[in-house]
Computed example of a mutant assay.
Amino acid sequence: MPLPPKDSRINRHSMRDEVYQTLLNWITEGVLSPCEKIVDKELASHLGVSRTPVREALRRLEDKALVESSANRWTRVAEIPPGEAEMIYPIIWTLEKLALSVAVGNMRDEDYQKMRRANQVLKKAIEKNDPIAASKADADFHDVIIERSLNPHLIMILQDLKIRYRRLEVVFFKGAHYAQSSIEEHESLITSLQNGDLQQAEQIIHLNWEKSLERQQSMESKETEKKDAN
């Protein structure tokens, strides 16, 4: 089970949450790959904690269907189900349009500045072919709108969906998922919001996710062809 180096030990005061967040990040970012076996003793040693917070974190991840186990036999990172993208993306763009319709009246200048900074980070990540940085920057961009909906239930649902979406990107696309058009769509979205044109902003959000799904399906098809050829 390959694990990244740890620069520091887990903070004892926030141990449970930090262990959970660390393992969640490793799964989301592809450090722990689908179907990879997880050994709680090894993780605990690597993180400098007891096995108890690791086991608690694994149970929480299992509740989110990111980890699966067989009693007293094995624990592993869950597989990505076939057709996951087709199931997730339409839900995300529908809920993001809902968030947008509420957030539009709450947006401030600093929010648009955050979105532009995230878009610049996305641009640089694409140029460097860095899928993890690109995925995070894209999420940071959309999160500004989601957070400004001020709806904790909607925010929580979208956060859970975005975990699955980011995992799909990193596992399958290695940076190819993103294109220059994503950056341009983001800029158009900011302009529409600043102009108060909700209808156009909703259309751009839909188009942005729809194109992402098309790119994802294309890359997944290529991966399948490559496996079949081998």
Rank of each mutant, 00 (worst) to 15 (best):
A179Y: 05
K123F: 09
K6T: 01
V54T: 13
I190Q: 00
V104T: 07
I88N: 03
M107S: 09
I190G: 09
P81G: 05
G196T: 01
S14C: 09
K211S: 07
K41P: 00
L95Q: 00
E29W: 02
A201N: 01
W74M: 07
L213W: 02
K124T: 07
P34H: 06
Q216L: 13
K97E: 10
P152S: 12
A125V: 04
H186T: 10
E62T: 08
Y20W: 05
T224H: 12
H206L: 15
L154Q: 06
E184W: 06
G175I: 00
E184K: 11
K174W: 05
E185W: 07
L23I: 01
H177W: 06
N11C: 05
D138M: 01
H13L: 14
T224N: 15
T75L: 13
R164I: 02
P5W: 03
G196I: 01
L198V: 00
E210N: 14
A118H: 05
Y178P: 03
K136W: 08
N11Y: 06
T191W: 02
D143S: 15
R215D: 08
I145V: 12
Q113A: 15
A99I: 04
I132M: 05
S45L: 11
L95R: 01
N230C: 11
S149K: 02
E184P: 02
P90T: 13
E62I: 04
S212A: 13
L32F: 05
V170Q: 12
T224E: 14
L58R: 06
I157N: 11
D228A: 15
L161M: 15
F172Y: 14
A133M: 08
G196R: 03
M1R: 04
A44F: 00
V102L: 14
E36T: 05
E127P: 00
A85I: 02
E96L: 07
G30P: 02
R167I: 00
L98D: 07
W74E: 08
E147R: 10
Y89N: 15
D111K: 06
E184T: 09
A229K: 08
L161F: 12
D130M: 03
K222M: 13
N11K: 07
